[in-house]
């Protein structure tokens, strides 16, 4: 929507509380909660030593038939966009082809992959970090077998993306909209995102949910989140490689 020129700037006093990494340079949008891409896995099938250091390892033949994906999911697509930005279209395409050759199981949504990993139906999957914690909150820690694995450093698989907001330029109620954004970035709302959704709060001082590893400063590829909007290439690649 920002690329289409539909957003006006959020008042600096409102958006200013968010780390520059998680908002637009011109404050046309800002993140309100963070989510990390992770590899969810079933420890009964995948011993810690075998965990991939990078998502690029998932094209190895040993993962054949063991990977769960949700190619229709926006977060998965944003992650593929991040890969295109960091390693280029050619290498991303090769990776997608390798992934396809490994016969992944495709799911309609991330939470289904996490459930499947927990129930022993898929060994490893590419998801957002919070689905595991939501499952744990739902069925209890003792029955949650699946675990999250964070791939290392600047791997595109370690992307930290945001759920964000912007204010429509066309709105006749700019002040109310700004107040709403202010609320979303206030402590009660941030606590809700952290404690109920198990996302990363973006307001300094609000603690992450218990059991959630804190965000590392340099975690994930160094990219401008605004560039992830360009999904045209991503979808083309997913179509070309037959994953979509």
């Amino acid at each position: 929507m920002d690329k289409a020129g539909l957003f006006g700037p959020i008042p600096a006093a409102v958006a200013g509380v968010v780390d520059k990494k998680f908002r637009a340079p011109d404050d046309n949008w800002t993140g309100v909660s963070g989510r990390a891409r992770v590899v969810v896995y079933d420890p009964r099938k995948v011993p810690a030593a075998e965990l991939p250091a990078s998502v690029f390892d998932l094209t190895q033949p040993k993962w054949k038939g063991r990977i769960g994906l949700a190619p229709t999911n926006g977060s998965f697509q944003a992650f593929v966009s991040a890969m295109i930005i960091t390693v280029g279209e050619a290498r991303t395409k090769t990776w997608l082809q390798g992934l396809k050759a490994n016969d992944p199981k495709t799911y309609a949504a991330n939470d289904l992959i996490v459930k499947a990993a927990n129930d022993g139906q898929v060994d490893i999957g590419l998801v957002n970090h919070y689905y595991l914690f939501q499952l744990q909150a739902e069925i209890g820690a003792e029955r949650t077998v699946a675990r999250n694995h964070y791939t290392a450093g600047t791997d595109p698989g370690a992307l930290v993306n945001v759920a964000g907001v912007g204010i429509l330029k066309s709105s006749k109620r700019q002040a109310d909209a700004a107040r709403f954004v202010e609320y979303l970035l206030s402590e009660p709302a941030q606590r809700h995102f952290a404690d109920r959704n198990f996302e990363y709060p973006l307001l300094a001082g609000v603690p992450t949910a218990a059991g959630l590893p804190p965000l590392q400063g340099g975690q994930g590829p160094a990219i401008n989140l605004g560039d992830l909007a360009d999904l045209g290439h991503t979808l083309d690649l997913l179509h070309q490689t037959g994953l979509l």
Partner: peptide
């Protein structure tokens, strides 16, 4: 169709809505 992973025509329509403006 989406939950039981049957690739159908409506899935393409929904995908198209989901992944772009």
């Amino acid at each position: 169709v989406s939950i039981l992973r049957f690739d159908s025509f409506t899935r393409v329509i929904y995908q198209s809505y989901q992944s772009s403006f």
